[in-house]
């Protein structure tokens, strides 16, 4: 565990808490893509199956349970408790266009052709693109509330910090995982446009509004 990895994890937890608090306090999930939240739940479910087979550390297990529980809670709040506020019409990204290619790619490019490893690989590929329905929703409505922007910034920063973690681990431990690195680069690149808008607009107190 190095500082980049730990900062990345904190950023990830922070993003999830921001999102849950936003939904809970405003009693509304307007502007949030339920499709992205479902994809994240699928990501955690398929990646953290090793919770039952491999013990890494208390930190590792606690975080896995936390991600599973909070993503389940988010999906519950969006699709059950605050269903009436869910922006159904704008959240029209077809998730099968992400699920199917990620599944096929995981079957072809993986470290080991076992159920656990293919599911892990699938979750890595899917996570890299899981934010697309959310970005699509923002582009369709043309704007995002500040709190949603903070959520996206924290969520995007997490994988960017993991990239630094991987550079550090390569240099210090000679450890690298090409699948994770490749997917992590894709994931971070998808946020670049948003990062630019966040820094130039939201941090200056303006609302995130896309040019018409």
């Amino acid at each position: 565990m190095n500082i980049f990895r730990f900062a990345g994890d904190l950023s990830h937890v922070f993003a999830i808490i921001i999102l849950l608090l936003k939904i809970w306090k405003t009693r509304s999930c307007a502007g949030i893509s339920g499709k992205s939240q479902i994809l994240f739940a699928v990501v955690y479910l398929t990646r953290y199956l090793d919770l039952f087979t491999t013990y890494v550390s208390l930190y590792n297990s606690v975080m896995k349970v936390l991600f599973l529980a909070t993503s389940g809670a988010t999906v519950y709040l969006m699709y059950v408790k605050f269903k009436a506020t869910y922006d159904h019409n704008h959240d029209s990204f077809r998730i099968e266009f992400l699920l199917v290619p990620c599944a096929l790619l995981a079957l072809v490019i993986n470290h080991e052709f076992t159920v656990m490893e293919v599911l892990w690989t699938f979750s890595i590929y899917l996570e890299s693109v899981a934010i697309l329905p959310q970005l699509f929703l923002v582009s369709r409505t043309g704007e995002a509330e500040s709190i949603t922007s903070h959520y996206l910034f924290a969520l995007g920063s997490y994988r960017a910090l993991y990239l630094l973690n991987w550079v550090y681990r390569y240099m210090v431990e000679s450890h690298y995982d090409l699948i994770a690195i490749f997917a992590g680069v894709v994931q971070t690149v998808l946020y670049c446009d948003f990062f630019y808008l966040y820094i130039t607009k939201v941090l200056k107190g303006k609302k995130l509004q896309l040019p018409a």
Partner: peptide, 10 residues
């Protein structure tokens, strides 16, 4: 091996 299938990252 450089590929460590033990998943210590999240």
């Amino acid at each position: 091996s450089d590929i460590d299938l033990d998943k210590d990252e999240l």
